[in-house]
Write a protein that binds this DNA or RNA. Sequence first.
DNA 1: TACGCGTGAGTGAGTGTTCACTCGCTTGGG
DNA 2: CCCAAGCGAGTGAACACTCACTCACGCGTA
Lengths: 199, 199
Amino acid sequence: MDDETGDSVPPDAKAEIAEAIGAALAKHGYERLTTAKIAAEYDKSEAGLYYHYDSKDEMIAAFLDGAAAAQAAELTDDDREDSETRLRAACERLFVAPGDERAGLHVAVMELLSHAPYNETLRDPLRELEGATLDALADIIREGVGDGTFREVDPDATAAFLLAAADGSTGFHVALEMDVGADLRRGWSAYVDSLLADG
Amino acid sequence: MDDETGDSVPPDAKAEIAEAIGAALAKHGYERLTTAKIAAEYDKSEAGLYYHYDSKDEMIAAFLDGAAAAQAAELTDDDREDSETRLRAACERLFVAPGDERAGLHVAVMELLSHAPYNETLRDPLRELEGATLDALADIIREGVGDGTFREVDPDATAAFLLAAADGSTGFHVALEMDVGADLRRGWSAYVDSLLADG
DNA sequence: TACGCGTGAGTGAGTGTTCACTCGCTTGGG
DNA sequence: CCCAAGCGAGTGAACACTCACTCACGCGTA
């Protein structure tokens, strides 16, 4: 998408809109997200959004594509660390607490997920996002099983279970602000402990 | 929920509406839930709903109150079984698969959870629902730790982690229909294994 | 240099629809 | 004959999206 020079910022309008979507989603969630609110985060008019995209959902899909790539990059980044450290770092990223700057977005993604059965436009980008996270986790675990850090657990099952727990914590921990932050941390931390070899 | 006679139904209008809400929520989700669709599940008119409730969200809150009670009852029911069996049964209930008759409702509850930050009316009933489930799980685990079935795990942390996993699986497994059913089952099953004493 | 012209980017003011909720009216049982 | 229970037909607001338009510019020509 970028031109090769990358010198004077050619601030691609589509990218700017995707960014505005991210900000607006985090602030307002999906149901309350209006094109007016998106335009408010963008520095252009509401109608201008439709010059670049055909529908609101298409803009959101574009944002999600970017988010999937970013997520994969973040979780794959620290290639030098050992797998236990990497898995704990991934959990730290995925289990968000209320007040965290990612909290709003996590709740919004949860909302989007719940709309997936009714919204074809969003379904694929969301699959990509969750799939990327799942793969990154499974890779970390597979590596750890391979080098003897972890027991002989099933990497796919473990990754799925862990991602489910992270996603699910967004509901009662972040959205409802129930007082379970410490419990959840002890919960996932103990789970990672239980994956370690020997004991 | 049933009155003791169970003979001639004294069909409390409020309860009937709550039931209609449940059916409509499962079918359409929350965003697409309109008062017209609720009335369609009810055998009365749209305006009739407002004779009993002041707002749509109040009807949903009433439904959630009922659901919390039902959930607590379901998870506490089989008091005779041993705690491992009870915990596995609870997981079986909480981890829903696409196609399951509960699937629609689970997705709808996930949607409602994601609206909680913006909707005061729904927040408390949702806290009750999640809290009831959390307590039921913690009780089962506490009992199992007490009688030596489980290791000396923290019941609250374990319950929170398990509920998070169940809730979160609704997103990518049920709403997105990603092909992770077998992985998830192996995941939670292995987790329950890891809670057992000795080994 | 000066001029007109096509075009990419953007706008302000609608428009049609969907929806929660209201209102004045009916009706049947006690 | 009263009143709880319910109805049909609105009503107004919110919102996604459209449309006719403006404007700044690069460029070929003279």
